[in-house]
Design a protein around this nucleic acid. Structure first.
Lengths: 271, 271
DNA sequence: CTTGACTCTCCATCTACTGGAGGCTGTATA
DNA sequence: TATACAGCCTCCAGTAGATGGAGAGTCAAG
């Protein structure tokens, strides 16, 4: 029987850690003095500790290790745990890889422009949502006002309220702009059976997004940054772009308000 | 001004997390009602939050992000932080890679033998230490008794105490076993200037180690496991093997004691 | 006026330890 | 045998980045 300090030296594990393992029941000392509470370990406990360390090196949690050491684990379960861990590590590696390329892209961008970009691109998931929309080809971006009028009229007639920010889907670019103005509505919204206004489910997707703060006059910069980011970070476009008007419900509108906040989202997939 | 719930929906960040960011000063609401303590956010705060999220995706800590957003950061410092992070991520990836191959090796081993090996190999660092030793070629392993005799005699004459477990270094294998029996001594140990007993520094190294619990008769299994592990896990031998006798200082000795505990270490380098 | 959805603060929890304060215990030396 | 000092004990707090819950106050609609 040896005391904790010597045991610690033999196994190269700090005393504090041994006490912690005792506390959580992972490795109890062979004996504890009833009067002094001194922990006494047996050299024969080294193999168990070694097994603990080896399993820890695989990335298993102490909790999992405790369960594995519980003596009556079928080999099948061990195999399962390891396979699970294998997958976990692979996922983790992919994440790290992702981070690495993001960092590298940022660095490259700093090299080129010598400052931090005004826009920050984030990848996020957008949930599936039910929308009411009006779609048409318009000659110029500001011309979508008419479409908004049609949509609003219909919705207020039917007394349907929107459940989120309204937005425009751009199905095609200039010069023939194929725009669809949309408002999210409740899931049970009755369809109006109207030729112009239709309701449908807009399915969820991953998007790359930036937020533009300022008048629409300068929104091109935001588009430029976002498109460039998507290309340099190895994503591919995967659907029509969404331009979301993030005004608080009260104040919808003024195109040139310098406090306008707009989110631009491009559905993407990792190439 | 919008309330936390709506802001949470717009930016896809949980309410709890927004409150946490407020608490740590990373993103304070634009306004807080003095009477109700309700947090009110401005849509114009979305770009800042987006930047936070983007930096978080790079793997920066909230603390680092807070410092970066402190407005007066020179571009140089940002560059430095990113480069540092780049290196960190690469290290992390190497670690994950290491784990992955360890897990894979375990799985393969289970496939082959259909049980968990009796021995668990761990990689650890061994500190540099001062030793007194006697080295000679012996015809068989048990013959090292004589060498131990010489060493012990000398040390007890000089009244030098050992500072750790004694061990044998095997410089060569059977049939001509070149063994060096060693005892660690205090760093300032005076050298005895003896032809047979010498003192020297044994430099630190990484080792792959297993612990054998039981009589020496079966120690070959431990050697077998360890050597196999080293080979399948892509390490290379890097010095003479150490056989460490982990008995508590009191009971040195009996070769066939079934409670003998021995650690076997092979210095290794990652191939 | 009530109901139900939101929001608030405060506390606890997670992982695997690490550090420190304050107080015993064991051993070596004088 | 007295004393110094290393070693050991327990308890408490803190790490990072949230997450979950209790209990209470607030807001808007019907």
């Amino acid at each position: 029987m040896i005391r904790i300090g010597l045991f610690s030296k033999l196994c190269q594990v700090p005393v504090k850690t041994l006490r912690y393992y005792d506390e959580i029941g992972l490795l109890k000392p062979a004996e504890i003095d009833r009067f002094t509470s001194y922990r006494y370990y047996s050299i024969a406990q080294l193999p168990r500790l070694n097994r603990i360390l080896a399993l820890k090196d695989l990335g298993l949690s102490l909790d999992q290790i405790a369960r594995l050491l519980a003596e009556d684990i079928p080999i099948e379960q061990l195999r399962g745990m390891l396979r699970l861990k294998e997958v976990e590590i692979q996922q983790q590696m992919r994440k790290e890889q992702e981070k690495l390329s993001l960092v590298a892209a940022r660095l490259k961008q700093i090299e080129q422009e010598d400052e931090m970009s005004k826009y920050d691109v984030v990848i996020k998931k957008v949930e599936s949502q039910r929308i009411a929309s009006v779609r048409d080809v318009i000659p110029a971006y500001p011309e979508q006002g008419a479409l908004w009028g049609e949509l609003e009229t219909m919705l207020s007639q039917k007394k349907i309220k929107r459940t989120g920010s309204c937005f425009t889907l751009y199905h095609s670019d200039e010069p023939k702009i194929d725009a669809e103005v949309c408002e999210p509505i409740a899931g049970d919204g009755s369809l109006p059976a109207d030729a112009r206004v239709q309701t449908r489910e807009l399915h969820g997707t991953e998007v790359a997004a930036v937020i533009h703060h300022g008048s629409f006059a300068t929104i091109n910069e935001a588009y430029g940054s976002l498109v460039k980011w998507i290309e340099t970070n190895g994503y591919q476009f995967n659907g029509p772009c969404r331009e979301i008007y993030l005004q608080p419900p009260a104040e919808t509108g003024n195109q040139n308000d310098p406090d306008t906040v707009t989110e631009i989202q491009f559905p993407v997939v990792k190439a």
